[in-house]
């Protein structure tokens, strides 16, 4: 594995999925907004609008609130960097990767948390009530989501005997029947809830809200402007993409390349993009149908998903 891991092809695969996610993430967000607009009877701003927003933000002035520290300026960097690392190590295009064994599912989950923490600290560092409030809510939700996500990971990795992402994907590829096992299904449900919570989507958080008191993610970034905001927006989009991509490839890995030959990689890229498009559109449709929940009902949701995760693990023990 390690021998083939360092070939040019593998590097290309990693570079490819980095490029795909970085380039595609804003488009995915744009697509979701477009889907939503259409369902609301609007014309929509177009799939490329997030990119336009980003381009504009990069050209704008950056502002730092008085009294904040280096944490405020470092946080977007850390958020983006952690997301980039996840993007690099996750098996999106190929199960063969030069960074094989660098990070497993636990590490990926923890890196996601690292991003959340960075943003929460930034929110606190602004010294405003909204920043603190957003940070408090974000880490609370993340803390409650973490057990679920780890249990889902446990359920998935238990049957494979490894928490290595590529191993799980390969194992699912070789024995597709596993996807329909109770453990896998339960884990998928749990994972879906976690994606919603972690990505800050409805009904946990409303990304389009203007009302500070209902904000989670937005409240933390209220003070950011210009290029810092651009980084955060990009990173948020990428986190959503990565989470959906992980969900897609862990539970439906078909289409992923098991080699690093150019053609399968290209095919994998197309399939991956399509999968994400479908998932994103589905999520957008789902969001039209739900309203944001009260903050204190969110734990119910997470407790429910925790239960699914636990059932999934138990199922993998008893029904394995």
């Amino acid at each position: 594995m390690t021998a083939s891991g360092l070939t040019a092809g593998a590097l290309a695969a990693t570079a490819g999925q980095l490029a795909l996610v970085v380039g595609g993430a804003p488009l995915l967000v744009g697509l979701m907004r477009q889907v939503r607009a259409r369902l609301e009877g609007r014309a929509g701003a177009g799939v490329g609008q997030p990119w336009r927003d980003l381009r504009k933000l990069l050209g704008k002035e950056a502002i730092r609130p008085d009294g904040s520290s280096w944490v405020f300026t470092m946080a977007p960097l850390l958020l983006l960097a952690s997301t980039l690392v996840i993007t690099a190590v996750a098996p999106f295009l190929s199960t063969v990767s030069p960074v094989e064994g660098v990070a497993d599912l636990f590490a990926v989950v923890s890196l996601l948390m690292l991003g959340t923490v960075a943003l929460a600290l930034a929110g606190l560092d602004t010294g405003t009530a909204f920043g603190g409030m957003g940070a408090s809510r974000a880490v609370t939700v993340a803390a409650l989501a973490e057990p679920t996500i780890l249990l889902a990971v446990f359920a998935l990795s238990a049957r494979v005997g490894s928490s290595n992402l590529a191993d799980i994907v390969e194992s699912t590829l070789t024995t597709p029947a596993q996807v329909l096992s109770p453990a896998s299904l339960l884990a998928a449900v749990a994972f879906a809830v976690v994606i919603i919570a972690e990505a800050g989507r409805l009904p946990v958080d409303n990304p389009a809200t203007h009302l500070e008191l209902t904000m989670i993610h937005e409240a933390m970034v209220l003070e950011y402007a210009g290029r810092d905001l651009a980084m955060i927006e990009l990173a948020s989009a990428m986190r959503l993409t990565v989470l959906l991509g992980l969900g897609a490839n862990l539970f439906m890995p078909w289409g992923i390349a098991t080699t690093v030959a150019p053609l399968p990689l290209l095919g994998a890229a197309v399939v991956f993009a399509v999968k994400l498009g479908v998932l994103g559109a589905g999520l957008a449709v789902f969001e039209v149908f739900v309203a944001k929940w009260r903050l204190f009902r969110v734990p119910e949701l997470l407790a429910g998903s925790f239960l699914f995760g636990l059932l999934a693990v138990s199922a993998s023990f008893f029904l394995a």
């Binding site: 009294g67 904040s68 959340t116 560092d125 603190g132 880490v139 803390a143 679920t148 249990l151």
Partner: peptide, 21 residues
Amino acid sequence: ALTAGLGMVTFVKAFGVGFLA
């Protein structure tokens, strides 16, 4: 896992409230 999650909250609080802003 829950411990890890709450540990994260704890230290975001300790560092964020104690040292920042």
